[in-house]
Design a protein around this nucleic acid. Sequence first.
DNA 1: CTGAAAGCGCTTACAG
DNA 2: CTGAAAGCGCTTACAG
Lengths: 334, 334
Amino acid sequence: MEAERQPTLADVARAARVATSTASRALQESPRISEMTKLRVREAARGLGYRPNRLAQSLRKQTASLVGIVVPDIGAPFFSRVVKGAQAVFEQNGIAVLVMNTERAPEREVAALQTLLEHRVGGVLIATSGGSTSEPEVPTVYFDNIVLKRGVGNVTRANHAGMRQLVGHLHEHGHDRIGYIGGPPLLTSGTERLDGYRDAVRELDLVDRDDYVQFGEQTWSAHSGARAMERLLALVDPPAAVVTSGESFAFGALSACRARGLRVPDDVALVSFDDPPFGDLLDPPLTALRPNEEEMGRLAAVLLLHALQATAAQQPAEVRLPVELVVRRSCGCQ
Amino acid sequence: MEAERQPTLADVARAARVATSTASRALQESPRISEMTKLRVREAARGLGYRPNRLAQSLRKQTASLVGIVVPDIGAPFFSRVVKGAQAVFEQNGIAVLVMNTERAPEREVAALQTLLEHRVGGVLIATSGGSTSEPEVPTVYFDNIVLKRGVGNVTRANHAGMRQLVGHLHEHGHDRIGYIGGPPLLTSGTERLDGYRDAVRELDLVDRDDYVQFGEQTWSAHSGARAMERLLALVDPPAAVVTSGESFAFGALSACRARGLRVPDDVALVSFDDPPFGDLLDPPLTALRPNEEEMGRLAAVLLLHALQATAAQQPAEVRLPVELVVRRSCGCQ
DNA sequence: CTGAAAGCGCTTACAG
DNA sequence: CTGAAAGCGCTTACAG
C-alpha cells in the first residue's frame, strides 16, 4: 500500500529554490511567472520524476478528474464496446473512468452509484437496471435504458424505428408470419422494440398472434433465446421468419434452428436488432442493424462533458441514434 | 463540475455537537467513543446524507482506494471478461477500478500508466503490449502477456501445454498434417503457443512445414485469421486440420472454410485455443479450451491485493492457469 | 514577478 | 471518552 514516497511539489520547489506557490504556477504555465523560473521548475520536476497528485488537485480545486460508468455486465460485448467509446472521449479530455458492474441487481446499482459519489466523480454514465430511481446527485447521462426527463441526457438507439425496419424487411421477402424474440418488456429496449414490432405487425397487416411474441430472460442470455425459439418452432403454425432483439438471442435462435435441422433462411428467416460479435462471419451471415455501440458511448460521454461545462442547467438532451439495416443472408437475400 | 456542496464531516460534527475528530472516530467505530456519541454522530450523518470523501481520506491516510487496469482493447470479449473478474474482486475489497485502453499502442500504454500514477492507484493490472518496459513504480500484476521477474505477479494460461493438448487431440483423430494460425510471436501468447505447437509437431512426428504456420495481425483480427486460413488452404498439400490461437482467428478460419465450400470437420478439422463468445453455438460447435478469462481476472486481482497487504517484498508470483479441453464437434468428435 | 498563508476534507498523534 | 492541532499535497486569493 505504501509505495515509496513520490516527490511532491514542495520537493520540486526546494530543488528549484522557489516557493511551492511559484512552483505550482510555473507548472501551470501561468503568465505571471518568468520564463527563467519556469525553466528551472520544469527542470527540477523532470529531474525528480515529479508527478502531480490528482487527488490533492481535485480536493483543492474542487473539480473532478474522475467520471463513473455503470453497466449491467461489462463482460457482454455490447456494454464493453459502449465503455470503450466513452472511455476514449473522456481520456482525450483528461478524465479517468471508474467502471462499475451491477449484474443487473438494482441494489448493486445503488451501491455502485454510492461508491462513485464517494470518489467525487464529476458525472456518471449509466445503463440502468432499475436501481437508480431518484434524481441523481451528479450530472448523469442514461444510455441504452433511458429515463426521460431525468439527468442531463438520454442516449439510446431508435428502438421503435429499428424494429419496424427489420419487420418491414422480412415482409418485403414475402413473410406475413413473423415471430419476435426479445427481452422482457421492463426497460427501454424491451418495451420500445416490442412496441415497434407490434406496430409493424398491425400496419403491415401481418398475422397477429400473442404466441408469436416470446421473451428471453432478463439477462438476455443466449440459452433463453434458444428456448424462446424452440417455443416458436413448436407452435402449430410456426412463424416462417423471426426477428430477435439482442445479440445473444440471435445466437440462441440460430442454434435452436440448427438443433431442429432447420435451414436459415430457407426454412426460417432470421434478422436481429443487435449485431453480435462476428455476425458477418456466422453461417448464414446475419442480417441485423449496423452496430454502433462505440458511437453510443462516445455520444453519451460528449453529452456528459457538455453538461459539466455548461453554466446553466438545461433540459435533458434526448438522443436516439439512427439505425441502419445491414442486409446479409439470414433474411433470405441473395 | 461544481455539484452543490456535499455535506462534510465538519457539518456532521456540528449537527451532532461534537468535534470533527470525534465524529471521524465515531464513524470509524473506534472503541474509544461512547455508544451514545456514536449514535448521535451516525444519526447526524444519515440526516445530512453524509458521504465520506474518499479523495480526502486517501490523501490523509496515504493509502489508495483506487487500482488501475490496462488492456489492449476493452471492447474485445477476452479482455472485457478479465476486467469483469478483476473488478468483482476489487469491489468486494472496497477498491474502485480505473480502466485504461491502449489500442495496443506502446506510447498509449505509457501514457495510461502515467495517468494511473497521477491518480495514485495502489497497484496496476496490465496486459502489456510492450509499452511498460521499466520496473513499475507501483505493485503490478502482468496478465495474458507476462513479464517474468517483474512486478509482483504474472498470470497467464498454460499456453504451451494447452497448445500441445489441442494438437494432440487432432492427432488422436488421425491427423498428421496440422496447420497453425496464431498471433505474431512477439509477446507471451504469440510465442508460447507457437512453441507448444512446434514441440507437439516434433514429438508426435507430424508433418513439419514452415508454411503450415501462418500468423494473423498483431490485433488478432478475425479477418486476418480468415486470410491466414486461406493461405493454408491454398497450399499444394494443405493441412487437413488447423489449430487457431485466438477467439477471433477461430471465427475467421471458420468463415474462410465456408467461403471455400469446405465442411468442418469433414474437409478440415478445426480447434481453437481461445473459445470465442458463443463458441458452443457455432456451426459446428467449436472444440476449444474452456474459457477462464474471469478466473484469470479474479486471480490477478487477488495476487495484487495480496501484494498490497504484504509487509515484505516477495518474489513475483508466477501463475499459469491450467487449461481444459472442451470437446465439441469441430474437431471431428461425434 | 514571487512568497507566505489559508484551506479543500479528512485522520491521527498528542493532551487532558 | 473527547477535543484542539497538525498535516496529507496541492491551489489561490492576498501582499508586496
